[in-house]
Amino acid sequence: MKQYLKLELLVEIPDDLEIELVNPLQAAKNIIVDPDKKMTMSVDELAEELQISNTTIYTMVRRNEIPHKKVRGRILFHRATIEEWLMNIE
């Protein structure tokens, strides 16, 4: 049996502040995917897009420094995951 916990957040908001509450599930549906771009990239494609060498990509994969998946021996990169990863690099 699944149990759920409902949390309420009470925040005092100044009268002059305009806010818009967004449902995260609804916001996810509004993401626009560019149909001209593939969802996954190969090592060559990622290296070209990031303007670094294939060797650097392979080294990062070997050290687990970049998010990737191996599918039947091929190394693939999910475009959205790579974009998020790039925004969060320290």
Rank of each mutant, 00 (worst) to 15 (best):
L25E: 05
L10Y: 03
K37R: 14
Y4Q: 11
G73D: 09
E49D: 05
D36T: 05
V33K: 13
E12W: 10
I82C: 03
H68Y: 14
A80C: 01
D44V: 09
I13N: 09
A47Y: 04
K70R: 13
E18L: 07
D44N: 12
L25C: 03
Q51W: 06
I32E: 12
E12G: 05
N30H: 09
V43S: 08
I52C: 06
E18T: 13
L10E: 09
R74Q: 05
Y4S: 15
N88T: 15
K37C: 10
L21H: 04
N88G: 10
F77K: 03
V11C: 04
I89R: 08
I32R: 14
K37S: 08
S42T: 15
Y58S: 10
I89P: 02
L25D: 03
R79L: 03
D36E: 11
N88P: 00
R79A: 00
E48Q: 08
I19L: 11
D36H: 12
E8P: 04
D34F: 13
E12N: 11
L10R: 12
T81I: 03
E8K: 13
K69V: 15
R63H: 15
T55E: 04
R79D: 00
T40W: 14
Q3A: 12
V43T: 14
T55Y: 05
V71Y: 10
P24D: 03
V61S: 15
G73M: 12
E45W: 07
T81D: 01
G73Y: 14
K70I: 14
L7C: 14
I31Y: 11
D34M: 15
R62I: 00
N88W: 02
I31R: 15
M60T: 00
P35M: 13
I13G: 02
H68F: 15
E49C: 04
L50H: 03
A47K: 05
Q3F: 06
E84F: 05
L50W: 07
E18F: 11
P14E: 07
D36A: 11
E18P: 01
Q3H: 15
T40P: 02
L76Q: 08
L46Q: 03
E84S: 10
T81H: 06
L76S: 02
Q26M: 03
Q3P: 00
I31C: 08
I52L: 06
M39Y: 11
D44P: 00
H78I: 04
N88M: 13
E65Y: 14
L25W: 01
E48T: 06
V33W: 15
D44Y: 07
A47H: 08
A28H: 05
K37Y: 14
W85N: 00
L76T: 05
L50A: 09
F77V: 01
Q26R: 04
G73H: 09
A28L: 06
S42C: 14
N30V: 07
D15Y: 06
S53N: 06
E45D: 09
V33D: 11
I32D: 08
V22A: 05
I52W: 03
K6S: 08
E84G: 02
I75K: 13
V71H: 06
R74W: 01
L10C: 13
I19G: 04
E20M: 08
W85D: 00
E83I: 04
T59W: 12
K70Y: 06
V22W: 10
S53K: 12
P35D: 10
W85Q: 02
P35Y: 10
I31A: 07
K37N: 10
M60W: 13
